[in-house]
Design a protein around this nucleic acid. Structure first.
Length: 110
DNA sequence: GCAATGACTGGTA
DNA sequence: TTACCAGCCATTG
């Protein structure tokens, strides 16, 4: 029944669902790097996580997913920083990045 | 099937 | 600190 084109979207949607579910579990004041999300899920890679966020990230607290160096998403830096600041996320001294040492989330466990 | 692209990462200069 | 390069993995043309 499912056409090839539709099935392809559904297959990726499975990975996207896991990413979005994990992102929505990130507590306020905490962040996760793209690579960390992929590692916690044990699938795909940082670029795949970024692809999911660009397409379905708006469904959750996308601003809590940042780059490994603490920089927020490309093209949404000001927006992400404003939301992170609202969550009380510890920012670096420069104020344009997240303090990964203090804001990095360990994951749903612990 | 191949090449280009992407909300990335880590290393080196 | 920023800039450039090579690697990585799935989607898209």
């Amino acid at each position: 029944m499912l056409s090839s084109g539709y099935r392809a979207r559904v297959r990726f949607d499975d990975f996207a669902e896991q990413v979005l579910d994990l992102v929505e579990r990130i507590p306020a004041g905490r962040v996760l790097a793209y690579g960390d999300v992929a590692r916690l899920l044990g699938a795909g890679g940082p670029r795949q996580v970024g692809r999911v966020m660009s397409r379905w990230g708006a469904a959750g607290p996308w601003h809590r997913v940042v780059r490994a160096d603490g920089s927020p998403a490309r093209g949404h830096e000001a927006q992400a920083l404003a939301l992170l600041r609202a969550d009380g996320t510890p920012l670096a001294a420069d104020g344009r990045r997240v303090d990964m040492g203090a804001a990095a989330w360990d994951g749903p466990e612990r």
